[in-house]
Design a protein around this nucleic acid. Structure first.
Lengths: 174, 174
DNA sequence: GAGTAGTTTTTCACCGGTGAGAAATACGGG
DNA sequence: CCCGTATTTCTCACCGGTGAAAAACTACTC
């Protein structure tokens, strides 16, 4: 018997699909097999990732910006536009992130001398120190989250997620 | 030569990993192969999913609630707690979602007669009609997003995401 | 070199989420 | 019954995101 109630029996998404199949047998709910699980996995990931970052007084949004600057290498400097593109965030969102991080002294804004529209963001020593400490922790935390996957499953999943990202990008185009 | 600049060359996550490898060769960034792609895929998914839903005057949050009620079957009624659990949202978040949907006449709150703490939420005819119309569109939209994946890739990805969700759940436990 | 189009970032008004704790109710044991 | 504990939902103060439009600037064209 497959029909479970609400609780913790099988997989939440499997139950969702069973319910839709019962209620709307005219529809094919199979996309949920992938995208519903994407959604739920992301929410779990987000919740668990933010905890240690928040313990250091940072949000995931702030962490994301500092990480982008750090991995860009010296002089740890990117424009607001580059940060928006790297994080898939709107330009308004980036402005907000920068306001907070600049207020906390983790980065500084510097107007470009040649093209005075563009704003460069540069890590301060405090920002560099913080992200260097947090990022190692962050990776360890992520490793814990993947502990139940075998190495082969991880590489397969990575490869399929890469294809998924491309598929989603394609769909966006038109 | 593998080092690409910023643009559209290979995969954004591959570039991120190359950068980290260059900047912090002491760390193993491999979790990003999976979780960075999870993150980006989710953001793309979210953006594209919200468009048609928003065109009907609804947010993804509202859509999520109506869908949970609809698939629960007649009488299309769940408690606030059940909705929170189904959507991985805090109780405060559910209250907010319900306020908006009730204000728009898409559901009604009904206090339980036996246990007056619990609030049942029931789809109104307007809510039922709206979600029945939108959900079919939504599935078609999701199918478009998966178009570049072969059937076999979809089932593999679904199965690996199920394992990932379980791995993330396990990690949450302690 | 003035006008126009295009770009980059910021502002504004809003939605949607959280954690902590309050409020209301239920329940079990003396 | 009454008390302490647990459960369920809501309130409050806040963070973080968006789209549209403004602001600041560049660059093209005539």
């Amino acid at each position: 018997m497959t029909g479970r109630v609400q609780g913790t029996g099988a997989d939440a998404v499997s139950r969702v699909i069973e319910e839709w199949h019962r209620e709307r047998p005219d529809l094919d709910p199979s996309p949920i097999e992938v995208l519903g699980r994407l959604h739920r996995s992301f929410l779990l990931y987000q919740t668990q990732t933010s905890r240690p970052v928040a313990a250091a007084g940072l949000s995931l949004a702030g962490f994301d910006v500092l990480a982008a600057l750090r991995r860009s290498g010296e002089p740890y400097r990117l424009t607001a536009g580059e940060l928006a593109a790297a994080s898939l965030v709107s330009s308004a969102g980036v402005t907000l992130r920068l306001d907070r991080l600049e207020g906390e002294g983790l980065l500084v804004r510097e107007r470009d001398a040649k093209d005075r529209r563009v704003v460069h963001c540069r890590l301060t020593p405090a920002g560099l120190h913080l992200i260097d400490r947090l990022f190692a922790e962050h990776l360890d935390n992520e490793r814990r989250m993947l502990a139940a996957l075998k190495p082969k499953e991880r590489t397969q999943l990575a490869s399929l997620l890469e294809k998924l990202e491309r598929s989603l990008s394609d769909a966006q185009e038109q």
